[in-house]
């Protein structure tokens, strides 16, 4: 029961970072391997405002969203778009974007190391206990979960109820067809990239309320987000959300039943099983 609740609570924040990555990959077709660093930057932001000026992370994650959006929008516009334009084939673009976003991730690690040093950091926010079925849990986990859930629902509604959301979904289905009906594909991609980055950063801020971070841990989160997105089937954010809970539960179960040092290995085994048996994702449909 413990495992179930902690796993679900963890899954909520994971869902947020995975949805951010998925929005970027689904619409802009760039697998952003610097996603984890954006998340860590979000965590640093929350930490800095909380310890420096006592601002609640719950306010900070909304406050810095425009900054994260602008930064990620600029990354797409000025670093990725030239690659998209010069690429001769999808494979070529894939290799280029992998290398470029890896480069970006290392640069961000370097910058964060220079600004904050190589220490681990964490802070106490809402560490009061609350009870679920007689068991005490930390409030910060619950609050982060509720916040993440609100974000996900908001995003889902926005994608499915607004014109802009429709545009993004159209581009994610077929950039070619979208171009033909007059959609500015590059603009939509930049928008999705920025939005995805802002969501990931918010996820980082929420995770920082109960996890310990350091400047170079981003790559671990990138891997987790990728595992989730692939498990969820790449296309639908509902798939990613479910997959995030699967990962949260798996990790919590392995950490408490076997060894906390094996969480990533566990995520990996899940990933391998998905690749072997359902390469289209647990909820994805097989491509034709």
């Amino acid at each position: 029961m413990d495992i179930l609740i902690i796993g679900v609570l963890l899954g909520g924040a994971y869902a947020l970072m995975a949805v951010g990555l998925q929005l970027q990959y689904g619409v802009a077709r760039i697998m952003n391997l610097a996603n984890g660093e954006i998340l860590v930057a979000g965590a640093f932001g929350a930490f800095w405002f909380f310890t420096g000026s006592q601002v609640s992370p719950l306010i900070t994650v909304i406050g810095y969203a425009p900054v994260a959006f602008a930064a990620n929008w600029a990354i797409y516009r000025y670093l990725m778009l030239p690659l998209v334009r010069r690429s001769k084939s999808e494979g070529h673009l894939e290799v280029d974007s992998i290398l470029a976003t890896f480069g970006l991730s290392f640069i961000l690690v370097g910058v964060m190391l220079a600004l904050f040093g190589g220490e681990f950091f964490s802070y106490s926010f809402l560490e009061k206990p609350f009870d679920i079925m007689g068991q005490p849990y930390e409030q910060n986990r619950l609050v982060a979960f509720l916040y993440a859930a609100a974000f996900c629902v908001g995003l889902y509604v926005w994608l499915h109820r607004t014109r802009m959301g429709l545009t993004l979904r159209a581009v994610s289905v077929s950039p070619e067809a979208s171009r033909r009906v007059g959609i500015d594909v590059a603009g939509a991609s930049a928008l999705a990239f920025g939005l995805g980055g802002a969501i990931t950063a918010a996820g980082g801020g929420l995770l920082s309320t109960f996890l310990v971070f350091d400047a170079s841990i981003g790559i671990i989160f990138t891997m987790k987000a990728l595992v989730i997105v692939i498990m969820g089937g790449l296309r639908d954010i509902r798939g990613s959300i479910v997959a995030a809970f699967v990962l949260g539960l798996t990790e919590t179960a392995v950490a408490s039943l076997i060894d906390p040092g094996l969480t990533l290995a566990a995520a990996y085994v899940v990933f391998i099983l998905v690749l072997l048996f359902r390469p289209q994702g647990i909820f994805g449909r097989r491509a034709t």
């Binding site: 480069g103 290392f106 640069i107 370097g110």
Partner: peptide, 17 residues
């Protein structure tokens, strides 16, 4: 020693661009 990551990142971008 703290700037090795930065150097790696710049090398990646150098290669791509």
């Amino acid at each position: 020693p703290n700037q090795t990551a930065l150097m790696l990142g710049l090398c990646f971008l150098l290669i791509v661009y």
